[in-house]
Design a binder for these strands. Structure first.
Lengths: 331, 331
DNA sequence: TTGAAAGCGCTAACAG
DNA sequence: CTGTTAGCGCTTTCAA
C-alpha cells in the first residue's frame, strides 16, 4: 500500500496541497464547500498527516522526553501516569528513557534526546548530575526536573521537600520525648536518603542534640532485610525507626517481630514513601502520602507553560506538600 | 543560538553536505583525512544530526510505540524495563502511550501512532480489541502484542498461558484430594480472570467435576478487601484460594486471619502474579514467577526481527513459561 | 479564498 | 572518493 500523502489528497479533491494543509490545520480562511470537499477526500483515502514532516516544517515535534530511573516502583509509575495524563491534554507525546547503570548511560540518553529534537524534557532521577543538564540547556531545551529543587532560565522543578518533612516530624517526636530516632539507609536512593539525613541532623541540632542512628546497610548484605534481621536480634531499641520505601518498612516490621519486638509498643515505625502495601501490612504502617501522581502532572503542566508562554514563566520552582497518614505502627 | 545543520558543518569542513552525511552515517568510502576534518567540524560546532529530518528522508523513525494500561503495577513496569533494555540495543526509541478510561481513548492513541509514523508498536493491554488492531495493520505497521496469543502477517505475540498454568495447578490439587478451589475476581483484569476461570473449569471438567467457587466481588464493595472481610467472616472454607494479584492475596491473608482462619493450615493461598511483596507477607505467599521483564524484552526482540528481516519471520507466537514458587501459604 | 514555490535538514542515487 | 541534485511530506509566505 502506497503511503498516501497530502499530494494525493490534493489531487483527489482537485485543490492545491496548500489548501489541504489549511484544512487539516483548521485554518479559518478556507471556504466551506472546499473544506468539505477536502475532508471527503481525506476520509476516502484514509489520509493521516505525517507528523515527522510536520515536525520538520514546523521545527517542533510536540513530543517531550521523559527520563526516569530504571527501577519500576509504583511511585515512578504514578509519576508517569500523572505526566502522561496532562501531556495528553496538551497533545504532547512522550518519549520514554530510562537510566540504567553505567556512567556513560545518561550521556547517551541526552545525546539521543538532542537528536530527536523533542520540545522539552522532564527528568526524574535520584542521582542527577548538573553537568548533564547543562548539555541540554546548551541546546536551549526547556527542562523540568522532578524531585530536586533547582531552576534557572531554562529549567524548572517540581519537588517535595523531604528534608523539611522529616525535620518537622523529628521535631514533633523530640518534643514528645522520643529522642531516639533511627533512619534506615536505602542504597537505591542515596540522594533521597541524604535529604532525610540532613533534615534529621538539623532537627537534632536545633534541639541541642546530635542525630546518630543512621542505620547503614553494609555492602556485604544482599538486602536490607538480611541485615536488619541481624540488627534487630541484637536487642536493639529505638523510639522510632524511619524508612524510605515500603519494602524497607516491611523488612523492619518482619525482623522486629521475629526478634520479639512489638510495633508500635516497643518501637514505632514510619515510612516516608507511603504505598498501598503499607496499609496491607499488619500492623498497618504509618507513612507520608507523597503526591506522586501530581508530581508528574504538575511537572508536565509547568513544562507546557515554559514551552508556550512568550515571556518567562515566573514560578519555575514548585513545592508540593505531603500528608502524614497515621496507621498502626505509630502511637 | 542558531540551530546548526549539516550545511554549517559542510561549510566549516569545506566539503559538501553529502560528505558530512557520509561520515555521520559511518560510510566506508570517505577518505580518512577528510573524515577527520569533518569530525572536527562536528565537534567544534556541536552538531547533532536532526533525527526528524533523517526520519523524513529515510522513511523510518527508529522509534516504536508502546501501549500499556494506565495502571502502574510493578508488573507493567518490569515489562517496560525489559522492552526498553532491548530497544536500546537496537537503537530504537520508545513512544509511550497509556490507555485510560473512555471508549474512544484507544482510537485516539492509534490515530496518534499512525501519524507519528513509528516503525512498529507493542501493545500490552488486558482488554484488547481486535478491531483496533486492524486499523494499525491497515497501515502496514508491524505489531507485537503482549499477553494475548494471536498472530498473522503483521502481528506477533508473546504471552504466558495462564489458562494452562492454572489448569496444571488445579489438576495437581485435585489429584492431591483438594477439590475445593476458589478463584477471586479481579475487576481490573477481567480478561486475565477469564483465562484463569477457563483453565479451572477445564480442569474440573476433565476431572468429572464442576468448578463453582468463583468469588465475584460485588460492585457495591469499594475493594476486594472489604468484601473478603465479610466473606471470610461467614466461616467459609476452601482448600485453596487463588488470587491474581499480590494485593488480593494479601487481602485474603489478612481477612482470613481476622476471621480466625489459619493459612495454610485451614486454607491454602496462592497468587498467580508473584511479587516481592508476596515474600514480605507473613506467612509468605506462594506464587507463580511470571517472566514480566522477559515478556517485554522478547516482545521487543520479536518486533525488531519483524522490522528488519526481509522474509517473513516464522515464529511469531512466543509462549513464555512460569515457575511456581512455593512459600508458606501452601502446604 | 486559493495556488505556486521556497524551505525545514537530511539521504541517496548519479556523475564526475 | 566527493559533489550535485532530487526527493521525503508538510507549512507558510507571497501573489494572484
Amino acid at each position: 500500500m502506497k503511503r498516501i500523502t497530502i499530494y494525493d489528497v490534493a489531487k483527489e479533491a482537485d485543490v492545491s496541497l496548500a489548501t489541504v494543509s489549511r484544512v487539516i490545520n483548521g485554518s479559518e480562511v478556507v471556504r466551506e464547500d472546499t473544506r468539505v470537499k477536502v475532508q471527503e477526500a481525506i476520509e476516502k483515502l484514509g489520509y493521516k498527516p505525517n507528523a515527522i514532516a510536520q515536525g520538520l516544517a514546523l521545527q517542533k515535534t510536540t513530543t517531550i522526553a521523559l527520563i526516569v530511573p530504571e527501577a519500576s516502583y509504583f511511585y515512578t509509575g504514578q509519576i508517569i501516569n500523572g505526566l502522561i495524563d496532562v501531556a495528553k491534554i496538551y497533545k504532547y507525546n512522550i518519549m520514554l528513557h530510562t537510566t540504567t547503570e553505567g556512567i556513560s548511560e545518561m550521556n547517551d540518553i541526552i545525546e539521543n534526546i538532542i537528536k530527536s529534537r523533542v520540545d522539552g524534557v522532564v527528568i526524574f532521577n535520584d542521582k542527577l548530575n548538573k553537568d548533564e543538564l547543562k548539555q541540554l540547556t546548551n541546546y536551549q531545551i526547556p527542562i523540568v526536573v522532578i524531585g530536586n529543587k533547582m531552576s534557572d532560565d531554562t529549567v524548572g522543578s517540581v519537588y517535595v521537600d523531604y528534608a523539611k518533612l522529616v525535620y518537622d516530624y523529628a521535631m514533633k517526636c523530640i518534643k514528645a520525648g522520643k529522642t531516639d530516632l533511627a533512619l534506615v539507609e536505602d542504597r537505591k536512593n542515596p540522594a533521597m536518603i541524604k535529604q532525610l539525613k540532613d533534615g534529621l541532623e538539623r532537627a537534632f541540632a536545633d534541639s541541642g542534640m546530635k542525630f546518630e542512628n543512621y542505620i547503614a546497610i553494609p555492602k556485604e548484605y544482599r538486602s536490607s532485610y538480611l541485615f536488619l534481621k541481624e540488627y534487630m536480634s541484637g536487642n536493639i531499641h529505638h523510639d522510632v525507626i524511619i524508612t524510605y520505601r515500603d519494602s524497607q518498612a516491611m523488612a523492619v516490621l518482619n525482623t522486629a517481630k521475629e526478634a520479639g519486638l512489638s510495633i508500635p509498643d516497643d518501637m514505632e515505625l514510619v515510612c516516608i514513601l507511603d504505598s498501598k502495601y503499607n496499609a496491607m501490612a499488619r500492623p498497618q504502617i504509618s507513612g507520608f502520602k507523597i503526591p506522586d501522581y501530581d508530581l508528574g502532572a504538575v511537572a508536565m503542566r509547568l513544562l507546557t507553560k515554559m514551552l508556550t508562554e512568550e515571556n518567562e514563566v515566573m514560578d519555575k520552582e514548585i513545592e508540593l506538600s505531603y500528608i502524614f497518614t497515621p496507621r498502626k505502627s505509630t502511637k
